[in-house]
Structure formats: structure tokens, C-alpha cells
Amino acid sequence: MTTDQETQIINQIIGGDTQAFALLVDRYKDLVFTLAIRMLKNREEAEEVSQDTFIKVYKALSKFKGDSKLSTWVYKVAYNTCLDRIKKNKRRHDEVAIDSFTENQLKTLDNALNLMEEKEQQQTIQDCLQELSGKDSFLLTLFYFEELSLEEISKTVNMEANTVKVNIHRARKRLASILKQRMDPETIQHYERARS
């Protein structure tokens, strides 16, 4: 969907055609829900927060000036709604310590991941993302799924682009640490055996 089409839909909605909003919901619901689930680590809460996000978007649609992409704005609303929920719950996710890796260790992890079956791979990665802190998970999802630029992510999470870059790098390291913990020791041993 191009920005022109989105502008047209926004104008339709502001003009009173409420049903046109369903198009926007369908377009963004998966990613908004994924971002919420990665932040909140709870399916039910993520669904509630995603609904709240879209209702907020609908209410504020007339104030959207179009100086950024609609998607960036929607993700920003989602991020803030998630933060509000986390604040309300007074829950804090403990951050995983960053391990240092050698190139070989990383290659071993990569290959061990390759040896897993597709379903097992997906499950392991989902579990790792579940363990990662909400903010790290959010940043990685935006970076890899939506392929947003650092500039766009910085607008979404209200941070400097450089800070976003550093945070994404740390998030990568933490994800690798969790992956290593998850796969240790059996899978890696299995991989070593398979290699030898």
C-alpha cells in the first residue's frame, strides 16, 4: 500500500466512512500485535493493548499531519500504549547479561540452529524472544520485520538514531546469549559430533 492510498483512506475515514478504517486495521494488526506480544509477553494483554492502539489511532487520525509514514506513527502509538500498560502493571523484565562471543562461537551457534528442524527452530527463537526484554524485542522486530530505517525507529521510540543503533546492537548480543543458553549443551554437542 502506498502512502497515497493511505492518505486516500485517511481522508475517507475523516469524511465519515468508518468502515474504511478496517483496511488500516487489517494492514497493521499483525505487526502491532507482534510488537505488543514482544513487549508484554502475554497474549491476552497484547490483544487488549493492540485494540486500544487502533482505537487511539482512530480517535487521533484527524490530527495525523502526514509528516511521517503512517506505519511509523501507528507503531509509535503501539509502543506508548505498551509502555503505559507496563507502567500500570509495575512489571519489570530482568535484562539478560551480555556475553562476549568469538567469531567461532557465533558460527557454531549458527550451524547448530541450522541443524534443527524448521518447527523446532521457530519454537526456540520464539522462546528466546520471549526471554528478551520488551524494548530489545520491539527494536529487533521493527528493524527486521518492517525494515524500518534507524531514523524511523528513532521517531517511533523517541530516541536518538545513534542510541537506537547501539540498543539494537546490544539486543542482538543479548539474543545470541539467550540462544546460547537455550541450546547449550546438547544441541551444540550434537552439532560438534555431526561435524567431526
Partner: peptide, 14 residues
């Protein structure tokens, strides 16, 4: 490694 892992993690659907 992370790019590959993120590619494997599917989008959740509500």
C-alpha cells in the same frame, strides 16, 4: 545470526 533468527520467527496473528 540474528537476521536469520528473526526471519525464522513468524509474525504473530491476533
Amino acid at each position: 545470526l540474528v537476521a536469520k533468527a528473526m526471519k525464522k520467527s513468524a509474525l504473530e496473528t491476533p
